[in-house]
Design a protein around this nucleic acid. Structure first.
Lengths: 151, 151
DNA sequence: CTTGTTACTTAGGCACCCTAACTGTTAGGA
DNA sequence: TCCTAACAGTTAGGGTGCCTAAGTAACAAG
């Protein structure tokens, strides 16, 4: 019960946690390789769904630097999935809005990806799914803890 | 309780699961950006710890194609962290073994990464950590389900 | 009206991954 | 024995996504 022991447990958990993260990278890679729309682009596109998202906000939400967001936005624009327009209130800013094609692309991509994952989850027992479901909010919290440190 | 409803629940869970995976990508990215040894290289190096791992085995374990593994191995070799030597039993094959420097690099990198994650996990409640701990084996199972599809 | 800050874009570069093509080795017939 | 198919890795070439540094343009404050 001393500090050392607690740390040891924590470190062991951290190790397993890292391994799980590593696995999810593979899973995501696989998911990406079977779709037209990459995860990065899907993330941008999703933010552009509700009207006009600013480039900086998109970057922040995706955990990347502004130029990286710009790059994805330009690709999406060329693909006709988003439009860039000047912000009426601040002409330095750019509003990124999904086009109709963009909207439908998101829906399709999201559905296909969800189905893929659901297919995997479907092979689990209900108890296992419950365990996952219970863990997801904690993952969210962890993500929130990671976020604020910013860049 | 009909199939449709089950599917709906499953899809919703899949959606949340995807979101959690997305977050772990950010977390891993952050982890990587603060270290010398990248995740990709650490993965290769770890496989090279117990004697001689074959290039193909490394690639398979890391979920990448052989040329990608070769690339990382060459980098590690240039950094003096692994050695490549011919397999005595099959001279087509190459054995990749960690050097002393490689071993110590793994230890340091692993420890630093674990400490980083432990620092995050340490801010959770014990109950939350328990939930995570319970979920990790299920993540492993999911990874195993994803793996076999191979290519 | 100048000066600093802010929002974004452009330019250049790096890491990691992939497919296709090549080299060398092994193994299984004819 | 020799020829050929399969196999293990490497090389070549290309794509994506991310980053920093250096522009450009617009706002905001003195």
């Amino acid at each position: 019960m001393n500090t050392l022991q607690v740390d040891k447990t924590l470190l062991a958990l951290a190790q397993s946690f890292r391994e799980a993260m590593r696995q999810s990278v593979y899973l995501l890679r696989r998911l990406d390789s079977e779709e037209q729309l990459s995860s990065a682009q899907l993330g941008v596109l999703k933010m552009a769904l509700d009207g006009g998202a600013r480039v900086g906000a998109i970057a922040r939400n995706l955990g990347v630097k502004v130029p990286s967001a710009t790059e994805q936005i330009i690709k999406l624009e060329r693909a006709g999935l988003v439009q860039r327009e000047a912000d009426p209130d601040d002409s330095r800013a750019v509003r990124v809005a999904a086009t109709a094609a963009g909207r439908s692309a998101v829906e399709h991509a999201d559905q296909r990806r969800n189905e893929f994952i659901a297919g995997i989850l479907g092979t689990l027992t209900q108890a296992e799914r419950d365990v996952i479901e219970a863990a997801l909010p904690v993952f969210d919290k962890i993500a929130g803890l990671n976020d604020p440190v910013q860049n």
